[in-house]
């Protein structure tokens, strides 16, 4: 629930939260686990039976511990909202998430920095999945139009035996500013991971993405995928990496960078390392202009080139 003295701050964050596609009314429901951070304060929180939620303030941010107990299957998505309304400053958010044996939870995280001019947000998320746990984490960002936001989002996940993890990072509706996304996943036996980043860059935005799968357990499997649409004079560096360290481990990495504009500067490096002869890793990468056949198909139906690009990109980044 919202702390009474932070009601107006919540309303402001909620406004941008909804602009980024969230449903702010969910923060007011008692049957939904939620936590709202503004600057270095937790201004609202709620939890349900079987989910332990703790938080404390830091000098420039907050630290959060969230544990879903063994066997608990959280029905509604857990909502996290991190906001920062001032134009300048720094925010550090440390999140420790643990899912017990056979627990299940889906997370929906929105980060809203609508006024950032010289603002840095650093989020470090440690995720621990116990045996047979299932977790999905969707991180959606909403930044200012000025491009003055710097974001560093670091995820380190350990997946226990037979656990399943899906992590997505989306920054597609507003300016990026400077962004670094790092997702590293360590998988035990028969664990499954799917990690994905989708970013739409404009003007002089800069994006760096590192996605890494460590397939340490027998028959573990994972996919790491990045999609970047780079326009104007934006820059992007993408590294998708996979280690096949165990028998029958299977991994696939994929990077798609579409460019539009004469001054973009994008690059991708796929890295595959196999330490077990029975492991199997594959990769797929493409950089370049929009698929001409797709463009021409839509233009032949009456869309301008820009309308066609918008529709194609909207679909790809969905």
């Amino acid at each position: 629930m919202i702390e009474s003295n932070y009601q107006r701050e919540f309303e402001k964050i909620a406004e941008y939260y909804e602009k980024s596609g969230g449903d702010a009314s969910r923060f007011l429901r008692r049957d939904i686990v939620s936590i709202i951070v503004s600057g270095d304060k937790v201004i609202g929180r709620n939890t349900v039976e079987g989910v332990e939620l703790k938080a404390k303030g830091l000098e420039n941010g907050v630290e959060i511990w969230l544990e879903v107990k063994d066997g608990i299957q959280v029905e509604n998505p857990i909502h996290l909202c991190t906001g920062y309304l001032k134009p300048e400053g720094t925010q550090l958010v440390l999140i420790h998430t643990k899912l017990g044996k056979a627990a299940k939870a889906n997370f929906l995280s929105h980060c809203v920095f609508p006024n950032g001019k010289e603002f840095t947000h650093r989020m470090i998320s440690d995720i621990e999945l116990s045996e047979s746990a299932k977790m999905s984490y969707e991180d959606v960002h909403f930044h200012s139009k000025d491009g003055g936001v710097t974001v560093e989002a670091i995820y380190n996940a350990h997946l226990g035996e037979k656990s399943v993890f899906r992590n997505t990072f989306h920054l597609t509706k507003t300016r990026v500013g400077k962004l670094k996304v790092e997702m590293k996943v360590n998988l035990d036996k028969e664990a499954v991971a799917e990690i994905e980043s989708k970013v739409y860059e404009k003007q002089d935005d800069y994006v760096e993405i590192i996605e890494e799968l460590n397939l340490n357990g027998e028959r573990s499997s994972g996919i790491a995928k990045s999609v970047v649409f780079a326009t104007d004079s934006s820059k992007a560096r993408i590294i998708n990496r996979a280690y096949g360290n165990a028998p029958y481990a299977r991994g696939h990495i994929e990077c798609k960078e579409i460019v539009k504009g004469g001054n973009v500067n994008v690059g991708t490096i796929p890295e595959l390392y196999v330490k077990d002869e029975k492991a199997e890793l594959t990769h797929e990468a493409s950089i370049g202009r929009m698929n001409v056949k797709q463009l021409e198909t839509l233009m032949a139906k009456g869309l301008t080139e820009n309308e066609a690009i918008e529709l194609i990109v909207k679909g790809m980044l969905k």
Binding site: K293, L311, K314, G315, M316, L317
Partner: peptide
Amino acid sequence: EPVRFEGI
């Protein structure tokens, strides 16, 4: 052979 569109 009509092309395909991801996400549309």
